[in-house]
Design a protein around this nucleic acid. Structure first.
Lengths: 118, 118
DNA sequence: TAATGTAGGCACTTTTAAGTAACAATTACG
DNA sequence: CGTAATTGTTACTTAAAAGTGCCTACATTA
């Protein structure tokens, strides 16, 4: 069984890694289907997306809903437990914004325009 | 120059990875010297510790102070900018605690007793 | 004189994370 | 009948993160 030295490590195991926080930040705004998430995250590969979504699902923070259609339609959303991360995610997003502003004079240089993709 | 799709990625670049949040959680309680941090984080190697501390220093969230002594004495502490992460770190720690409680019936099984090390 | 304690560097190896590419399933549509 | 659309799997490869072992410096202390 996994051992932690301090409790925060347990949180990192759930939302750690390169993609999970980003995925959750999108799902906090809206439920999304797979293809939408892929478009919102131009860098991610199909494999990584599926893998991260599975792990988040296993940890109980997101819900995967399959609609019986062809072509298939799968939607992801936060569970109640996932919503308990809202405070953290909001703070992280806000901190990231002001960090960019602090670090780069004009954030247009570092921020890819994604709004259009939403 | 690094490009982000959403601002939160900038935050992850500063506090992402396996160790940085843990380091910051310790420094938020107290300033620490290198050896203390190493004892508080039994899993970390000297190399990783130094490396992560350097990066945190470069990002302006921690301060490295060298005392001119032999054997050397180096102390790390949060900068003002580092303190702006307090909300996030506190929330993460709290979430980790309740996640352990939710996930494991008795947390003694997963939490290594570190209190004695402090 | 030789060992101790502290912080850290460096070269190298291993492990883990992430990326690539090809393929499956299914039905509507032209 | 062949193709597009959507989600996902699998085997393989590459890149990044982390770990290992050995080395330095130097005043103090035994």
């Amino acid at each position: 069984m996994k051992k932690y030295n301090i409790p925060v490590e347990a949180a990192l195991e759930v939302i750690g890694g390169k993609w999970k926080v980003v995925i959750l930040c999108h799902l906090i705004k809206d439920r999304r289907r797979t293809g939408e998430l892929k478009r919102l995250m131009p860098g991610i590969t199909q494999k990584m997306l599926t893998q991260q979504l599975r792990e988040l699902e296993d940890d109980g923070v997101i819900l995967r809903e399959v609609y019986n259609q062809v072509p298939p339609r799968v939607e992801y959303s936060l569970t109640d437990y996932g919503w308990s991360l809202k405070g953290i995610l909001d703070s992280l997003c806000a901190w990231g914004e002001q960090h960019i502003e602090k670090t780069y004079p004009n954030k247009e240089d570092v921020l890819v325009q994604t709004e259009e993709l939403v």
